[in-house]
Design a protein around this nucleic acid. Structure first.
Lengths: 340, 340
DNA sequence: TCCTATTGTGGAAGCGGTTCCATAGAGGAG
DNA sequence: CTCCTCTATGGAACCGCTTCCACAATAGGA
């Protein structure tokens, strides 16, 4: 037979309110009954049914996390950061993944997750959110934190990394340390906020260092390795002496293509990326790139969402938290020594 | 004001049982009332509170997933496979991660998750489960599937990959294709089931191919890159002409160390791994390794757990599902052409 | 001694649904 | 014109826990 608070109460010869109070440490209770109750609890291995507790308290003690599977390499880190603070606060994580084929279904699914109050708050990393989606999510009036994307003109909390600054640092490294004058840039897809910011940072760094920004050295990519490969050829023709791919995957594509053509990366041509993907240190030559603090993102997201959940202060002004990136200098930019 | 089934009922001029029936499509209901109810639902954007539904139905519609963060590289794949089938069945995923520093807390945490019936079933990947833990988990009588580890003598469902066969195939490749006679083997940590199976497969393949197993060519590792580095030196002294590291990380360590010493991997010395980690194709030289079907594991786990949840057939005989691995031949074994 | 805190406890009303059961009207069969 | 069977619907119990409120007993203070 399933054992509930009623059973415990009956066996202890008290009312269930008393049991509840004992277990939660709320209100007065005699030591005698308290210990008897705890004894019974131990014996029967009783744990309150969270479904009942949650309904009664009107709280799910759960926060939802939505991630694109493209975040694959970063997954672990974000989740770990998140869990680190959520678990300390007795909250649980409800995960939802999506790849490009299922965006619509996943959106439906996480909307339903919110609507049905299965979660108390939501952390959403949807690289292509639009105002309509945000509106819909907000209409449920539950705490939400968006990741990685700045949603212009919407009153939402956002946590993002400093793409602009990362690209700036990288560009400056290329210019100041290596003295490259003609740097090609491979962009992300047209609708990518991250990509746009990186381009902006690149451009600004150029200008601040006395180089003029040359639009003919900018090539459109879409963050895939394939697009990097394609861009490599064109870059070559453009007479660039360094290639800044706005993510690591494209950088990898560029490198493979260059190597296929017998061009020595780091020596004949510098190639750098952005992301500090897990594998970027292992490729040849080790990739110079920009590190994204994924673990911190997870932690910040958790902290922010918990704060919003626990203070019912709905009118708090939304904020944008920007986390710093870090330049990771390895060899593909021409730094260091390595055999080729 | 929060809108509940009562509000809808009142507005529609019916009882809440009728609303419930309309929404769930159970029992009889007149078209007239049904459409009025649905209209109201739409207008007010009403979604039943899952906390109430769950309590009432006695089901959480959630399955728990426990993963070690060491599974990092595989994370995404497992989760995606899982989600693929869970979401199709209206179930949600509750995720829990742990690294080596927090094993005990995480165990406590997922035990509480089970005890409090927050999940209807549990998928556990705990590389170092012991009988005691299993016992404890089983005592709650909820469906559980273990991943990656064969738990001897315990009546639990397990999904694992065929480590034995994978190592067998790899070894045979080394022997038959390349004709290496002295193959060194770097093991996993002493308590690793995976590691032991791989060693067993290695040994068996040797014997089946007329080579005797030489214990002096077996070196203890612990699945870390560092241990691979260390083992590399000793391997070298042993006069081996091929090194089979029982995971990719160690293989990477070996390769780096070898390269540091100026030894050409794939040419002077073959090095192979096991796991097909995400980055294994990108290192230099591209690693020959054994692929683990992580996506399939996720899918199978989900299917198995759902079946167990939905049939209340508790007495079903537990089974062990073994998924095939695949040999991935790249260049580090000496196959193919590449510039060194 | 009487009054008022303080402490300890039980009863009952929620939380927001589902579901069993009783009841009633409408048709159709006999 | 009955009787029976569907079809529709409402009422109430229930899921397992929290929490408010009322009340009792004990203890101090005046």
């Amino acid at each position: 037979m399933k054992i509930t608070i009623n059973e415990i109460a009956k066996m202890a010869g008290v009312s269930k309110s008393t049991v509840s109070r004992a277990l939660n440490g709320t209100g007065y209770i005699s030591d005698e009954k308290k210990s008897k109750i705890f004894e019974l609890v131990k014996i029967h291995n009783y744990v309150p049914d969270s479904k009942a507790v949650n309904l009664s308290k009107g709280k799910a003690m759960t926060v939802g996390l939505v991630l694109p599977s493209a975040a694959g390499p970063f997954y672990g880190e974000v989740v770990r950061g998140l869990e680190e603070v959520l678990s300390a606060n007795k909250y649980f994580t409800m995960l939802m993944t999506f790849d490009n084929t299922s965006v619509e279904e996943v959106r439906k699914r996480y909307i339903s997750m919110i609507g049905s109050k299965r979660v108390d708050g939501m952390i959403i990393f949807d690289p292509e959110v639009n105002a309509e989606m945000v509106e819909k999510v907000m209409s449920f009036k539950i705490p939400v934190v968006y990741l990685g994307e700045s949603i212009q003109g919407m009153d939402v909390d956002t946590i993002l990394i400093d793409n602009f600054d990362g690209a700036y640092m990288m560009t400056e490294h290329l210019v100041k340390i290596h003295n490259y004058k003609r740097i090609a840039f491979i962009t992300g897809p047209a609708n990518s906020f991250d990509g746009a910011e990186r381009l902006r940072g690149f451009k600004h760094a150029l200008e601040m260092n006395g180089l003029s920004f040359d639009p003919t050295l900018v090539f459109r990519g879409d963050f895939t390795k394939e697009s990097g490969k394609n861009a490599a050829e064109v870059c070559l023709k453009s007479g660039a002496n360094a290639i800044f791919a706005s993510n690591d995957e494209m950088a990898l594509g560029v490198i493979e293509e260059l190597q296929r053509k017998g061009i020595k990366v780091g020596k004949d041509m510098a190639v750098v990326g952005f992301d500090d993907a897990f594998w970027s240190r292992y490729i040849f030559p080790p990739l110079t790139t920009v590190h994204q603090p994924m673990h911190s993102i997870g932690k910040m997201a958790a902290k922010t969402i918990l704060e919003k959940i626990e203070s019912n202060d709905v009118v708090k002004t939304p904020m944008k938290i920007v986390l710093n990136t870090r330049l990771i200098v390895r060899n593909s930019c021409g730094c260091g020594s390595f055999t080729n």
